[in-house]
Amino acid sequence: MAATRTDPDGRSRRRVRDPVATRETILEAASNLLARDGPEGVSLSAVAHLAAVNRGTAYQHFETRERLIEAAVDWVSDKLFRAVFGDPETIGERRVEEVDSADMTERLCDFAMENPDLCRVWLQQVLASPDPRQDPFWREYSGSFGRFAATDLAEPDIDVEVLSVVNLAGVFFWPILARAHAAGDRQRTELSRRYTREILRLSLFGTMRAEAFPAIVERVRPKS
C-alpha cells in the first residue's frame, strides 16, 4: 500500500508502506477483535477499519477471513512463545539444566499481566482446537515441565499435563482480578511478582504438611 505525503516545498511524493509492519498492524487488530468478540466478530472489513488500512490492503495480506483468524492465532502464540522462551529457532539448543523455572514463571506472569487480551485469544483458540497439544507454546511449556520432571531435581511422579494446565489457567486468570485494583504499571508489576512468588512457593512446599494428612498421602501415592 502507498500513501501520498507533501514535502515542505509543496511537491507530493508517494510514501511506500512497509508490508511487514502493515501485516503486523492487521494481525494486532484481528487479535483485539478476537479477544473482544470471538471469531464471530472478526471480518476483513472490521479488521481493516481498526488497523486503519483500506480493505483492499487487508485482502492482499489475507485472502479470506478464515486465513486471517488462523494467522492471528498463530501470531498470538508466537508472541507468547517469544516472551517466555525466546527465539523459537534456538530453543532446541538449550539444555534442561539451563532452564530457570523462576525466570520462566516471572516472564509468563509479566506477559499475562500486560497482555490479557492476547492471553485470552490464545486460551480460547487452544481450547477450541481439536488437538491443543499441537500449539507451539503449549508444546514447549508442557515440554519444559516434562524435561524437568525427568531429572533428579524434581519430585517423583509429577503429572506434567495437569501441572501445565493448572499453572496456565491461574496465570491467565490472575490479571483479570489483579488489574481491577491495579492503579498503574508499578502496581501491576507488584501483583505479577506476587503471583510468581506464590506459584514458586507452591512448587517448593505445597500447602499441606504430609504428616498431618496420612489419608491424602495414601490417596495421591502412585499405584504400582
Rank of each mutant, 00 (worst) to 15 (best):
L33K: 00
R17G: 12
D18E: 05
P8M: 04
T64L: 02
V76E: 07
A48Y: 05
V76K: 02
L27C: 06
S43I: 00
A52P: 06
D78G: 04
P39G: 02
R13L: 09
D74H: 08
Q60T: 15
D100P: 03
T25A: 14
I69K: 00
C109L: 02
D100S: 11
G92N: 11
Q60S: 15
M104T: 14
A46C: 00
G41T: 00
M113Q: 11
A2W: 12
F62M: 04
L33W: 01
E97I: 07
Y59A: 13
R15W: 14
G38A: 01
E70N: 03
S101P: 01
I69E: 01
V20D: 14
E66V: 04
A102Y: 09
L44T: 10
R95K: 11
P8L: 07
V73Y: 07
I26M: 11
A35S: 12
R36H: 05
A71L: 02
R67M: 12
T90E: 12
L44E: 07
E106W: 09
D7K: 15
T105I: 11
V84E: 06
G92W: 12
R13K: 06
H49V: 12
L68E: 01
G92P: 07
I69G: 00
R82Y: 05
D9S: 09
E70R: 04
H49K: 15
L108A: 14
V99H: 10
T105S: 10
E63F: 06
G86H: 10
P39S: 03
R17L: 15
R17S: 14
A83K: 03
D110C: 03
A2E: 15
D100Y: 08
A83S: 14
E66L: 03
E98K: 02
A58P: 06
P19V: 05
L33A: 01
T6E: 11
P19G: 09
H49P: 02
N115T: 07
A35R: 06
L68T: 00
I91C: 06
L27Q: 08
A51Q: 07
Y59L: 13
S45A: 08
W75A: 02
D18G: 08
E24S: 12
R94S: 12
H61V: 03
A83R: 09
A71S: 14
P88G: 05
L68F: 01
W75L: 00
V99S: 06
E98Q: 15
D87T: 08
A71M: 01
D103R: 13
R55V: 14
D110Y: 01
A71I: 01
N115F: 09
V84T: 13
R15G: 04
G41R: 02
R23E: 14
A72W: 01
R94I: 12
V73A: 07
S45K: 04
T4G: 11
T25H: 13
D9N: 12
D18F: 08
A2H: 15
R107D: 07
M104G: 03
M104W: 07
T22L: 09
R55Y: 13
A48D: 08
M104E: 10
D103Q: 13
M113A: 13
E28C: 01
A102S: 11
D87H: 07
G92F: 11
D103A: 14
S31Y: 04
D87R: 05
G92Q: 10
V76N: 04
R67A: 14
V42D: 05
A102L: 08
V96F: 08
G56W: 09
L80R: 10
Q60L: 14
P116R: 05
V20R: 13
N32R: 12
L50A: 10
